[in-house]
Write a protein that binds this DNA or RNA. Structure first.
Length: 405
DNA sequence: CTTCCACAGGAACCAGCGGACC
DNA sequence: GGTCCGCTGGTTCCTGTGGAAG
């Protein structure tokens, strides 16, 4: 590319973006932004606050269990209330600490415990200590601190499904073994049927108080978006109908507020990039598609090599819109590995990896019987073919063989 | 009605790694 | 420096199964 061209391009982009007056404060639309108000969650805030308020009197609040789909405000409500609670506690000299652990990110008992220890002020190596030892340390050090500790376990279903409810059982009974400190647990889950995974004792102890977060309706999402848009956008930057449209799309996605906010933000970014001063519903439509494509590319990119090869096999076999089966995929996958001169995973393992691709929403599978031709999975590519290939070809090893297709 | 395919998916186990403890 | 520990990412072996073919 000639440098003059480059200058022109940069000039053009900078010009457009800088003259566009769309955002006042884009950050308030980011997923980790914690607003001071949560419209349509007054009831839940009241409930959580009333349970936790016991802490201010020095009592141990009841354990609390929150259910609700993604983007229904569970985490935000808990964060908001615990933040205010911590402030109040400080004012009143109550020794209170809130430990927030996302058990999807920190998904082993070891990591949960090390997060908890970190929260009460102790660093723990990433591996090496026996979990039982770690638990003993936690108990001992916590008791020394003379604290009221509120443990928030976000996305707790991930932990329990992978590692059972052992740790949870211990934590719910830890108070019996503490002399100076006290522990309350707040569990948060997206999975409404989650309690079937729990030992009944854990279940009853954990859900001393329960609270359900219903999905937001379209009008409620509209309120949330308006509230946030006021802070995020310049006046008049949104065309009539943009917010209801975002709300309607997100309401279709099971009332997910995070999705709604993402949509609005990306639509704004698109408008900004075009150098416009107005966000239109057309931008929202494009944003919707782009979010999905970006998600696919990103997910594909971060896949391990063998999963990529399996996905490539599936993409190739379903390119003409047909479905494929585990056996066919395995055959083609084997060709790929021998082309690359790397070892081939067993069918058993590949079967699990196919299951993971399904979980990621890249493909959809269904177990069927083909009679005498046996049981297998019907597989088809759920996501955009081009985006999948784009994500795959970013990996030079995959591009090497994908080029032949 | 029975057979029998081509896998699904559970269980047990293993190797290699990074890191603490003594 | 040897021992112990947990995690990841596999393998091996296994039993289970829906329904078209015979």
């Amino acid at each position: 590319m000639l440098s003059a061209d480059l200058d022109d391009i940069l000039e053009d982009v900078f010009e457009r973006v800088s003259k566009s007056r769309i955002f006042k404060n884009r950050d308030v639309l980011m997923p980790d932004f914690l607003p001071n108000r949560l419209p349509h969650r007054e009831e839940q805030i009241r409930k959580v606050a009333s349970v936790l308020a016991q802490a201010l009197k020095g009592y141990r609040p009841n354990n609390l269990f929150l259910y609700g789909l993604t983007g229904t405000g569970k985490t935000a409500v808990v964060k908001l209330v615990t933040k205010k609670l911590s402030e109040k506690a400080r004012e009143r000299g109550v020794r209170l600490k809130v430990a927030f652990v996302n058990t999807k990110r920190d998904d082993t008992p070891y990591r949960v415990l090390s997060k908890l220890l970190e929260n009460i002020g102790f660093r723990v190596p990433p591996t090496g200590i026996a979990t039982a030892q770690l638990y003993a340390n936690f108990k001992r050090l916590l008791d020394k601190r003379d604290l009221l500790l509120i443990i928030v376990l976000d996305e707790i279903d991930y932990h329990v499904k992978k590692h059972g409810d052992d740790l949870l059982y211990k934590l719910t009974r830890i108070n019996e073994e503490l002399r100076n400190s006290k522990v309350s647990i707040i569990g948060i889950t997206n999975d409404v049927n989650f309690t079937s995974w729990l030992d009944p004792r854990v279940k009853s102890s954990l859900s001393e108080e329960e609270l359900v977060f219903p999905p937001y309706t379209a009008p409620q999402l509209e309120d949330i978006l308006r509230d946030r848009a006021q802070m995020a956008f310049e006046d008049e930057a949104l065309e009539e109908g943009v917010i209801p449209f975002c709300a309607a799309l997100a309401a279709r996605e099971r009332g997910d507020a995070r999705k709604a906010l993402d949509l609005l933000r990306v639509a704004g970014e698109l408008a900004e990039r075009e150098g416009r001063n107005k966000v239109t519903t057309e931008h929202v439509k494009k944003a919707w598609e782009q979010i999905e494509k970006d998600r696919v590319i990103e997910v594909v990119r971060s896949l391990p090599l063998h999963s990529k090869l399996i996905l490539l096999a599936i993409a190739k076999l379903t390119k003409d819109g047909t479905v494929t089966y585990t056996g066919e995929v395995y055959k083609l996958y084997k060709e790929f590995t021998s082309d690359l001169g790397i070892e081939t995973l067993t069918l058993r393992r590949v079967s699990d990896l196919i299951g993971e691709l399904d979980m990621l929403g890249l493909i959809s599978t269904q177990v069927v019987s083909r009679g005498k031709r046996g049981m297998t999975r019907v597989i088809n590519l759920e996501s955009d073919y081009k985006s999948v290939i784009k994500g795959l070809k970013d990996d030079p090893r995959v591009a090497e063989i994908a080029g032949l297709i």
